[in-house]
Design a protein around this nucleic acid. Structure first.
Lengths: 339, 339
DNA sequence: CATTATAATTGAACCGGTTCAACTTAATTT
DNA sequence: AAATTAAGTTGAACCGGTTCAATTATAATG
C-alpha cells in the first residue's frame, strides 16, 4: 500500500542504497538527487520509522517516568523536554506511577521492552530493587537523566535543584521579617530533596541563632493530606508558629486548606511560603509567596543532554547540573504581629 | 547481543516458527512447549516490539493530542486512558499543542510518521485543513476517538459530555436560589462545547422566563485571561450580575482572580459556579461550586473503544457516547442579597 | 591522454520478528 | 493395521529500512 524505498528507487531509476543515502542526508550526484526528490514527491513517500528502528536499533522514543500527571512541576518539565527532543524527531512515552512501586517497576520494564532510546526519571524514594532496574538500562548504554534526586549508586546525568539554598532563602526571608518561630513541612524523611530542603531550613535558623523546635518540624510525605495534617497539628499546638514553610506543591495546598479551615488570617496571623509555582497561586487571596523551580529550563536541559548522549557525545559525562530557584515574594508573608 | 527468536529456537531445538507460535499463544506439543519455555528463561529472551511491528504494521502506540498538559481535565482523561490501554501493551505518545494550529498540524503529521495505531483527540476549533489531516488517518483505517467535540464532517467514535444539561443544571440551581441576573463566561463563540454550554444557559433562563441580557454574556476564549477580563467587565458594569457561571477551568480561575481583585465577597455579593474539578477548588475559600466532568470514566471509555477497534471490532461503530456531569455544590453560591 | 585518486552507486545481506505452503506426527476411523 | 483426518512443525520469504564490499563514474594529476 504505502510506497517504500524500493518503489522510490524504481521510479527514480536508482538503487535502494542511493535512496537511503538521500534520506540520510548524504551526497548524491545532482541528476540523481533530482530524480529521487521527484519520485519521493510523486509517490508521497514517507519513511517508516519502525523499519528504520529495526536495523539501527533505535525506537526514536524517550521514556519519561513521572510521579503524577497532576503535578505541575513535573508536567512543566515534560513539556519543555518534549519541545526540545521533538526537534530531532524523538517522541516521549510518558508514564506516571503515583508512588506505587509495583507500578513503577512494571513501567520501567515496559519501557525497556519498547526499547526506548533514553530514560528520564523523576524519582522519589526508590528501593534497591528499582535502582537495579535502572542499572539495567545503563548497562545497555541507554542514557538516563535523573531529575532532582541524588541516587549516589547510579552514575547518570542529573539535573538538580539547589534545594538547600532555596529553602535557606525562604526561611531567611521570614527571619528577616521578624519571625522566630517558623514551622516547616517536609517531605519524606529519607528523600533527597527533603533532606536538602530541611538542611537549608536548619542552616538559616543556625545563622540567625534561632532554636530548633521539633514541634514545628513535620514530615508531610509530599502529599496533600500530609501537608494538611502537619499544618493543622502545628497550628493547634499550644505554641503555634508565626510562619510556615511548605516544601512542595501538594503540601502547600494541604497547608492552605488547614489554614483556611482554622480561619487563620494570612498573612496577619500566619505567614506562609510554599513550593512550586502554579496557576492559582496568583489568583487566590492573598497571593502566595513561593519558591519557583525553573521547570522549563530543567526540561530543556534534560532534553539537550539526552540528545547529546544519543549522538554518542559523552565528553562531559556525568553532568550534575544544579539550577537555581527563585523566591517569588507576594502577599502571603508579613512581619509577625508581636514583633 | 540480545537473544533473538532464532537463539531461542536453536537452544530449544525447534524452528523459529514454533517459537513464534509459542509467543503468540498458539498450541505447541507439550515437550516442545517445555523446551521453548526453558530456552526463553535461560536466555532471558524478550521479544522485540519493533521487529514485531515491522511485519504486522503495528507500533503499539496510541497518539494523544491534548491542548495542554496543564489542563487538569485533559490530563485526568489521559491518565485513565493510559491505565486502560497499557493492559494490552499499548503505550501513549502524548502531544500538546497549546492552541497553536501549526504545531497541531505538525503533531498530527509527526504521529502519523510514527505510525501510531490509534488517535485520541481533544479538539478545539479546528480549521478544515486540520480536519483533513485527521481524515487521512481514517482513510488508513486508523481508529480515531474524539473527546467532547462534534466534528460533524468526521465519522469517528466520540465521547461527549452532556454539556447542555450540565450548564442547564448549574444555571437552574442559581435561579432556584433566587438569582435573576446571571452572567455567563463562554469559550469561543464557534466551539462545540461552548455552544452547548451556552444553549443550556439559555434554556434555563427561558424555562424560568428570565430575560437574556447580552451585557452579561461574555466570550472568554477558554483562557485564563479571557475569564478574568470577562468577569471584570461584567462586575464593573452599571448593572453587574449577582451570579457568574464560568464554563471551563481556565476561565474559572480567571474569574476568581477578577473577583478577588475587586474585593467582591463570595458568595455574599456574588455567587460563582465554575467548571472542572481541580485540587485547589476544595482548598480555596469559599470552596467552589462547580461542574465536574467524569474525566476518569471518559478516559477509560476511550481506551476501551480503542482496544475494541484495534481488535477489528467495529460492530458498534460509530459510538457517540454521552456522559453525564455532576454539579458539586459547595460554598461559593448563596441567595442574592436583594432577594 | 593515460593514470591515479576520489566520489557516488549498486544490490545482496541483514535487523528480528511473522507467515504460510509443504511436511511430519499424532489421533481417529474403518 | 491401514487409511483418513487433524494438529503441529518447519524454514524460506517477507516487512522496509541500512550497510558495506564491490563496482562504476567523475575529478585530479603527471
Amino acid at each position: 500500500m504505502k510506497p517504500t524505498i524500493r518503489d522510490v528507487a524504481q521510479k527514480a531509476g536508482v538503487s535502494v542504497g542511493t535512496v537511503s543515502r538521500y534520506l540520510n542526508g548524504l551526497k548524491l550526484r545532482e541528476h540523481n538527487r533530482i530524480k529521487v526528490e521527484k519520485a519521493i514527491k510523486e509517490l508521497n513517500f514517507k519513511e517508516n520509522i519502525i523499519a528504520k528502528g529495526l536495523k539501527n536499533n533505535r525506537s526514536m522514543t524517550i521514556g519519561v517516568v513521572i510521579v503524577s500527571l497532576t503535578d505541575i512541576f513535573g508536567t512543566s518539565i515534560v513539556t519543555a523536554l518534549e519541545r526540545t527532543v521533538e526537534k530531532e524527531n524523538y517522541s516521549i512515552i510518558l508514564c506516571d506511577y503515583e508512588n506505587d512501586l509495583d507500578r513503577l517497576k512494571y513501567k520501567l520494564q515496559f519501557l525497556r521492552d519498547r526499547s526506548v532510546d533514553a530514560l528520564v526519571l523523576f524519582p522519589s524514594i526508590w528501593p534497591n530493587e528499582i535502582t537495579e532496574s535502572v542499572n539495567d538500562y545503563l548497562r545497555d548504554d541507554i542514557p538516563v537523566v535523573v531529575i532532582d534526586d541524588d541516587f549516589p549508586t547510579l552514575e547518570t546525568d542529573k539535573i538538580l535543584v539547589d534545594n538547600m539554598n532555596a529553602s535557606f532563602q525562604a526561611v531567611e526571608k521570614l527571619i528577616k521579617m521578624g519571625h522566630k518561630r517558623i514551622g516547616i513541612i517536609n517531605g519524606q524523611k529519607n528523600s533527597y530533596t527533603s533532606k536538602e530542603r530541611y538542611a537549608g531550613y536548619l542552616k538559616a535558623l543556625q545563622k540567625y541563632q534561632i532554636d530548633v523546635d521539633e514541634d514545628i518540624i513535620k514530615w508531610g510525605n509530599y502529599s496533600n493530606h500530609g501537608g494538611y495534617s502537619a499544618a493543622k497539628k502545628m497550628l493547634l499546638s499550644y505554641k503555634p508558629p508565626t510562619a510556615i514553610f511548605a516544601t512542595n506543591y501538594y503540601m502547600t495546598l494541604g497547608a492552605i486548606a488547614a489554614v483556611q479551615e482554622l480561619n487563620i488570617s494570612i498573612p496577619r496571623e500566619l505567614s506562609i511560603i510554599g513550593f512550586d509555582r502554579f496557576p492559582l497561586s496568583e489568583v487566590i487571596k492573598p497571593t502566595l509567596t513561593l519558591i519557583e523551580q525553573p521547570a522549563s529550563r530543567m526540561g530543556r536541559l534534560a532534553g539537550q543532554i539526552i540528545l547529546r548522549r544519543l549522538k554518542g557525545d559523552y565528553s562531559d559525562f556525568p553532568i550534575h547540573q544544579q539550577v537555581p530557584t527563585k523566591l517569588l515574594i507576594r502577599d502571603s508573608i508579613s512581619s509577625p504581629i508581636n514583633s
